[in-house]
């Protein structure tokens, strides 16, 4: 009832949060969306790893502060296993800047505060399921600023990499969170060409995925946070 994406099938979601009330709230909200299905819940990182392995969800909604294995630990463990990484959306109660940044660096594809509206949450889940990111450049730039990370003194890359004008355009849209298919439509290119541009951008920025590319681009002032 809330989106027009049902034609592309139901997105399967796992919910990992130690707070029962919060899990109930989010599940209750997502029950209202026809095209999102919560296939499993977990109360900590260890359980989360198990249900992800069993259910192979499209998107994982992940809390960061949990007992035993926390959200960061789960992300690191997923990356260490080398299996295809599910799209992970971090949900936080508070603006835990440092934790969120660590989660993004550990492979999360986006983050939201937990008291989202149904529309925001469903849109975010679909964007991640489509291969996009939800890094919210304006907020992330502030986050990098506050943590003192958005400075030119990162020793690993003394010279900002040379991107072609086309790659700049693509990077801007990647930073805005769009998946390749939508970038292709916007720039009137084929999906394959966009894919090649993205691969080249990742290579030049020295990062392994789109989220990292956005963070690096923000740090290097390669994209306008407000755009």
């Amino acid at each position: 009832m809330t989106t027009d994406r049902s034609s592309r099938g139901v997105v399967r979601v796992c919910l990992v949060d130690d707070q029962t009330l919060v899990r109930e709230g989010i599940r209750g909200l997502l029950d209202l969306a026809d095209d999102v299905e919560v296939v499993a819940e977990a109360t900590d990182g260890d359980e989360g790893l198990a249900v992800i392995a069993t259910h192979r969800p499209d998107v994982v909604l992940l809390d960061l502060r949990m007992p035993r294995l926390d959200g960061i630990g789960l992300l690191e463990e997923l990356a260490a296993r080398g299996a295809p990484m599910p799209a992970v959306l971090v949900l936080t109660t508070f603006n835990d800047d440092e934790l969120v940044l660590r989660a993004l660096r550990a492979g999360a594809r986006g983050y939201l505060l937990k008291d989202v509206t149904l529309e925001q949450l469903v849109a975010a889940i679909h964007r991640l399921a489509d291969g996009g990111t939800l890094v919210q450049p304006a907020i992330t730039a502030g986050l990098l600023e506050r943590l003192g990370s958005r400075t030119a003194d990162r020793p690993s890359l003394p010279v900002p990499p040379e991107l072609t004008p086309r790659e700049h355009d693509v990077l801007g849209l990647v930073a805005a969170g769009f998946p390749n298919r939508e970038i292709a439509e916007a720039l009137h290119l084929s999906a394959g060409t966009v894919k090649n541009h993205v691969s080249s951008i990742l290579l030049k920025l020295g990062v392994r995925d789109r989220t990292q590319a956005v963070l690096r681009a923000l740090e290097l002032d390669l994209v306008d946070p407000s755009g």
Partner: peptide, 22 residues
């Protein structure tokens, strides 16, 4: 504040969001 009030308010907010949509 974080543990006791934060989580409850989040849950409350989510429930009210759902209620509004129903």
């Amino acid at each position: 504040l974080h543990d006791l009030i934060g989580h409850q308010l989040t849950a409350l907010s989510l429930q009210l969001e759902a209620a509004g949509h129903r």
